[in-house]
């Protein structure tokens, strides 16, 4: 049973990774516009030659 001492922290760490991923997504605005993202995929922006609207952060 000693192995539990390693296994449980490893399991918790992996769970925490998932949680951190979710919180990152939340912080970076992935959930800001759920409706828009669902609709956007239906519209081809490539034919305008621009692709995504340019992001000034780059």
């Amino acid at each position: 049973m000693d192995v539990l001492v390693y296994l449980i922290p490893i399991a918790l760490f992996m769970g925490l990774l998932g949680l951190a991923g979710f919180l990152w997504a939340l912080r970076s605005g992935q959930y800001e516009d759920l409706d828009g993202s669902a609709e956007r995929i239906l519209y081809d922006e490539d034919d305008e030659g621009g692709g995504d609207p340019p992001d000034p952060a780059r």
């Binding site: 800001e32 516009d33 759920l34 409706d35 828009g36 609709e39 609207p53 340019p54 992001d55 000034p56």
Partner: peptide, 8 residues
């Protein structure tokens, strides 16, 4: 440089 509509 940037124009984005938030549909929600």
């Amino acid at each position: 440089t940037h124009a984005r509509v938030n549909l929600t």
